[in-house]
């Protein structure tokens, strides 16, 4: 027993040589070892902070708190890496704001979506294909493809139906540029769709980008978008209306109806109409004429021979019903709502 006492005594004496590593705190400090952070909620000594001893006080306070943090770090699991001792830090508990929102799944383009629905998979093209004209293996895309194409199409035929002076090379280039532009627009549209921004098909582009005439059009269209086509909408003083044939024509992307007003003066147009009706000549249908002729001949022959034509059975049946008057037209022609249908089968 004496030995134990002695050893303990010796150890205590040894410890007395050094300053302590323990720290007394009234309230417990909050530690986040993962970020090497300690928050001390204990009250400060106001008198010391106001006095000249401020710096010493702050240093002592910080020392105590750092000691607490260091004590916690030294208790962590350690390992040896390249002649130095490394402590494994736990996951930080302090949540810091991110710089950007977490990324979501990539939005598919219109084509990708369609292809997925239909189960279309991408076919990989061969990097090089054999060209019979050039008698060479030619790249399908990328490096030296354009050169190969130029070699192949060193001359272009002008088709018969176009002007013989057209530059077919220029035409080819234009076609290509058009394709590139179309592709670019589609890319933009995909971006817009991915960002879920409402965009008009064309025309009005929002208050920042639109011109005054576009704004005017937008206002006119908006005002007429009521149940009564904007008939009872109030007008501002000096308000202008967008010019156009009508509201429908102003809506971007809406189908344009052909105007009934032509360049011709009205009188002339009407006269033309009458003339075209009056000058109509009956059409000659040769087959019909032949069949009529044949029927006449047959009737004449029958009368000569005294035979009466075979009478159809007088029994009333579905098939025997004679068609009286006009055949009803299904969904065709003008309806005359005032007039009662003069003839025809009464339908129930």
């Amino acid at each position: 027993m004496d030995v134990v006492q002695e050893v303990l005594e010796k150890h205590r004496k040894e410890l007395d040589k050094y300053k302590p590593i323990t720290v007394e705190k009234h309230l417990e400090c909050r530690l986040d070892v993962g970020t090497l952070l300690i928050t001390d909620p204990n009250d400060l000594d106001d008198r010391q902070i106001a006095s000249a001893e401020k710096e010493n006080y702050l240093r002592a306070l910080t020392r105590d708190n750092t000691q607490l943090l260091v004590n916690a770090i030294w208790e962590l699991n350690t390992e040896r890496v390249d002649e130095s001792i490394v402590a494994k830090l736990p996951e930080p508990t302090t949540v810091l704001p991110r710089m950007r929102k977490p990324p979501g799944p990539r939005v598919l383009t219109k084509w990708e979506k369609f292809a997925k629905e239909k189960g279309i998979t991408k076919k990989k093209k061969e990097k090089k294909t054999y060209d019979e004209v050039l008698d060479k293996w030619v790249p399908t895309y990328g490096f030296k493809r354009a050169e190969a194409e130029q070699n192949k199409d060193w001359v272009l035929e002008v088709p018969q139906n176009v002007d013989p002076n057209t530059d077919m090379f220029q035409k080819k280039m234009d076609l290509r540029n058009e394709k590139v532009a179309k592709n670019e627009i589609q890319r933009m549209k995909n971006i817009v769709r991915a960002k879920k921004i409402e965009m008009p098909r064309s025309g009005y582009l929002g208050p920042e980008a639109a011109t005054s005439s576009q704004l005017l059009t937008a206002v006119t269209v908006a005002k007429s978008s009521t149940a009564s086509v904007g008939k009872f909408q109030n007008k501002l003083p000096k308000e202008r209306e967008a010019r156009g044939l009508g509201v429908k024509e102003l809506i971007p992307g809406a189908k344009r109806k052909q105007s009934h007003i032509a360049d011709q003066p009205e009188k002339e147009a009407n006269l033309d109409l009458i003339k075209s009706v009056l000058n109509k000549k009956p059409k000659l249908d040769v087959e019909k004429a032949i069949s009529l002729q044949k029927q006449d001949e047959r009737l004449a022959r029958d009368a000569e021979s005294g035979n009466k034509p075979a009478k159809k059975s007088s029994k009333k049946g579905k098939g025997s019903r004679k068609a009286v008057g006009k055949k009803p037209k299904g969904n065709r022609g003008q309806r005359a709502p005032g007039k009662k249908a003069a003839a025809g089968r009464k339908r129930r």
Binding site: Y18, I21, R63, V70, E75
Partner: peptide, 21 residues
């Protein structure tokens, strides 16, 4: 405030800390 940490012996595994501004 910004201090340098000086690790001093404490007779134990965990060192005693002193600060220097």
């Amino acid at each position: 405030r910004s201090y340098q940490i000086l690790l001093k012996k404490s007779g134990q595994k965990t060192p005693r800390i002193e600060l220097e501004e």
